[in-house]
Amino acid sequence: MAVKKRKKDLNFFERIYIVEILKGMMLTLKHLFKPKFTRQYPEEKYVQPPSYRGRPVLVMDNGKERCVACGLCSRVCPALAIQVQAAETEDEKERYPELFEINMLRCIFCGFCEEVCPEEAIVMSKDYELVFTKYEDAIFGKDKLLVPVEQLKDRLEFIRAHR
């Protein structure tokens, strides 16, 4: 770190500040022509790394949800945003969620549901553009939550690598 100079130590040319002012002006002039940092958002979107926590979604394998409706996500959710109702099925997994709802007005994108899930059935997606105009629209049912597994590959790899 540079040694702090007191005002009394400055010589005459430093004290009239004209050199420093010109230096500052030159700096801003240089920045005038530099490339800009701005991302033109709606046209040019952010490419998220796999560690990005967007809205939580249910993984869909072969047209069906992986979820076994154990209710752990619902238990762990600090914002009480998840509601699960289990039902029986003829499949190997025996249980499936009859109703799975996430209230996106309550969700805080903490990712606890993903962390606690024993089946890797609920993961955080990259989707962050959530707009709704009505309260009812903010409660995402299974129709909005189910996402094919192919689209979630890098997130699944990420959680496997870091679990």
Binding site: T28, H31, L32, F33, K36, Q40
Partner: peptide
């Protein structure tokens, strides 16, 4: 515009 350019904005 100029203020934006000076601050590396658009």
């Amino acid at each position: 515009k100029i203020s934006a350019w000076i601050q590396d904005r658009v």
